[in-house]
């Protein structure tokens, strides 16, 4: 099998590794790079749990190969909080609004909302809700997530990882 060298900036640190051509990005991040916060709920692009940020875009890491992330900047849920532990505004809003129960869908939700709100222009509630419709949460009935979205739509964080 073909092994390919991979280099990326992962959660702000340089990372080097190697993967077979067929290895998915989610498996690589979880098993080779130690980012077990990347969750795998369906492996066919529907649930959104595996969402990570690649070069500023929220992508489904189950539908992307690890080799495709070579040379990219990748942020997983582990890379969002500040170094001193201060939660990202999306994480804080989710905590304040009871937006999670089991927490399995949460990393993907957090990454999607953070990617949309880490921009200077304030995203609309409708835009955030539309993005959220690509995530499945089996526990919460989305009540807290919707409350968090309403808060976030009113508070763009103005930074971009």
């Amino acid at each position: 099998m073909s092994e390919h060298k991979i280099e990326m900036v992962l959660n702000g640190h340089s990372h080097r590794g190697a993967a077979e051509g067929r290895r998915t990005l989610c498996d690589y991040l979880r098993q080779d790079a130690g980012c077990t916060g990347v969750h795998v709920g369906c492996e066919h692009g529907v649930c959104g749990a595996c969402t990570v940020r690649v070069d500023g875009q929220a992508v489904r890491s189950c539908l992307m190969l690890a080799v495709q992330a070579d040379g990219c900047t990748v942020t997983t849920v582990e890379g969002l909080a500040a170094a001193d532990g201060t939660l990202h505004p999306v994480q804080q809003a989710m905590q304040d609004e009871f937006a999670l129960q089991c927490g399995f869908c949460t990393p993907g939700v957090v990454i999607t909302l953070a990617t949309l709100t880490d921009v200077p222009e304030k995203p609309s509630e409708a835009a955030l809700l539309a993005a959220m419709s690509g995530h499945i949460c089996r526990c919460t009935g989305y009540q807290g997530i919707r409350r968090a979205i309403r808060r976030l739509a009113g508070e763009a964080t103005g930074e971009r990882a």
Partner: peptide, 19 residues
């Protein structure tokens, strides 16, 4: 009261079986 489970789950530090 805020949930004690949330800080680890929100930051990808939970421990699920596949972890």
């Amino acid at each position: 009261m805020p949930r004690k489970e949330d800080p680890r789950l929100l930051t990808g530090r939970g421990t699920f079986v596949d972890d």
